[in-house]
Amino acid sequence: MNIAIASGKGGTGKTTLTVNLSAIASEKFPVDVVDCDVEEPDSSLFLNIQKTDTEIVTIKIPEIDENACTGCGECDRFCNFNAIISFSGLAHSLPELCHSCGGCTLVCPEKAITETDRRIGEINTYISEKINILEGVLDIGVSSSPPLIRTLKGKISPEKFTFLDSPPGTSCPVVTTVTGCDYTVLVTEPTPFGLNDLILAVDMMKDVKVDFGVVINRATTGDNRVKDFCNQNGITILGEIPDDRRVAEVCSEGKILIHALPSYRKTFLEILENIQNQMEGTMQWKR
């Protein structure tokens, strides 16, 4: 059961929602958290769980056998990312640009290309009795995160209840995270920025064909446009978290809201139940 927590823009409270939903769900059953926000992974900062393992993630990049290469340029002509160029009778690879598609190896007539590993980041595992975290961390300076996110998602145990903390936005890394999930929660704010970014996120959800609902964070600004948008488009509002300076303070310290301010337990419990109800509907429909 995979539930992605996403948002059209960053800073709307995606991680707050992920960690608090995980904390409250873990009181009932074991939960996995998969932090796919690999450029800024934060979930582990809140959950205070022991790190047990770190695994290096690599992608395959071409390595050219200088003796075998004739400089024919076939690899160069094939590569759509300018990641391999041939000049003065020899091919040269540019690892930063390589998408690891494997095409150059396949097209080289001299079999002069083999594949070698290039490190792009790591995956940390945190294990506790109730919650396990899998956290992807992209190396600084590496520009493409989807390969790391794909590796991370490959480690999800399908039978467990898993929350995926998605990167913000609506581009490739988010699509990679959300695709194939059973449900997605979009977190937004009742502000013009929040609405603008929610509309983009809703468009994306239609593309990836994953069922979704919305949680409105900092919900008391007096701007109703987000709610109106959801109601007009038949989008389920799963819950609202009020605008409360105490929440900002508690979260700033890296604390779990439902522990520090128990009055918020009810809010998150309701959101969790609403998600479960929505998913049940979807599952029955799929069957």
Binding site: E39, E40, L45, L138, G141, S252
Partner: peptide, 26 residues
């Protein structure tokens, strides 16, 4: 946002950068 390719493309060749952050653990 982030530290990936879009940010690298934004910073390359610029003169000054102002980082706006929040006092939170994240």
């Amino acid at each position: 946002p982030g530290t990936g390719c879009a940010v690298i493309a934004t910073l390359t060749g610029a003169d000054k950068v102002l980082v706006v952050t929040e006092p939170t653990v994240s």
